Amino acid sequence: MVRRSVRVRGVVWLRRPLRVASGALASVVTLTVASSALASGPDGQQLATRGGKVVSLQAGGSAPFVIAHRGASRYAPENTLAAVDAAYRRGLVWVENDVQRTKDGRLIVLHDTTLNRTTNAAKVFPGRAPWRVGDFTAAEIARLDAGSWFGKRFAGEHVPTLADYLRRLDRHRQGLLLELKAPERYPGIERQTLRELRSLGWLDAAHLTNRLVIQSFCVRCVKRVHKLMPEVRTGILGRPSLSKLRRYARFADQINPRMSDVGSRWARVVHGLHGPHGRRLEIYAWDVGAQASVRAVRGRGVEGVID
């Protein structure tokens, strides 16, 4: 595949096609137009990946920024290290994941609050239905196969710990949109997650500026994250009513709804507010729909998609 460069404000940037890991945006998008505050810091810093090459540029292009939902989950089993690698191979510099806690207090990356859909828990532990994440120790979960359900070549893929997941992202210099999944089941998970992020170097200036956002459907949990660590950018999942947006902007930088819930008036109100870090609130939409075009997505007024 031919690579081209483009000169912007006296700097030569890498320009190469990105094959979006999604049926929703199954066209070829150039990374020179895939940019936002997610990809760059408040002072215009750019996010670099492989060998220091910049893969995102100025905002204002025609294509939305794409975040790999649960990793490149159309190409590898969701929320696994294989899905992180698949996103990297496809040029996706941000991934989204889901964080939960085991019975013995370890943070792992898994979407469902039960283990049986994406692992062989029912076979390994047949008498422990409904196989809730919080009922199993980290060692028990480490025994499970989290890849065979997706395809034979992924047999033996494991449910990763958050620590292993962060190390893999650092290897690739990818950013993370981290969702606290069902935090009401795991009291104190906000503080624990921040503690683990800190221990692995993810709360330094570089990560905070360019490579980390924490989101949740639980508004009070997002607020708690902001209170514990105001420097961390945060997002609220869902579509809050217009009457709540101004209050939420005090502690959230993003409002991330289902695509079908994004209306033009609602989006204008969101974009008319500024978050706790002084930037305009952003919208990253999910559940985009397999037939959505780039034009249709951009027409909704969103900065990007989680897909």
Score class of each variant (00 low, 15 high):
K103R: 15
Q46T: 12
Q45W: 13
G10Q: 12
P160M: 11
V225R: 02
A139Q: 13
K123R: 14
G289V: 06
A139H: 02
G41A: 06
A290H: 10
S62L: 13
L194R: 12
V219H: 01
A205E: 15
L180D: 01
R9T: 07
L144F: 06
V288E: 09
L166C: 04
F154L: 07
R15I: 00
Y165R: 08
E231V: 04
S216N: 10
S56Y: 03
G275V: 14
D170K: 15
I306W: 08
G61R: 09
G235K: 04
G61F: 05
R90Q: 14
L162Y: 00
T32K: 03
V294R: 02
V12R: 14
V222S: 02
E190I: 05
S199H: 07
L115D: 01
A87S: 07
L245H: 08
C221G: 12
L31H: 02
H207C: 11
W13V: 10
L212T: 03
V2R: 13
G263V: 01
G127Q: 09
N256F: 07
G235T: 00
L245S: 03
E196R: 07
T113R: 14
A249C: 06
A182R: 08
F65C: 10
R250P: 07
Q174Y: 05
R265D: 14
R167T: 13
V55T: 11
D43S: 14
F154G: 08
L180C: 10
G71I: 02
V54A: 12
N79L: 04
G91K: 07
V28S: 11
L273V: 03
R4F: 02
L200A: 00
H226K: 13
R295E: 03
F136Q: 01
L203V: 09
V55W: 14
N210V: 06
A87Q: 11
P187C: 00
G278P: 11
V55R: 10
R280I: 08
L18H: 02
S27F: 05
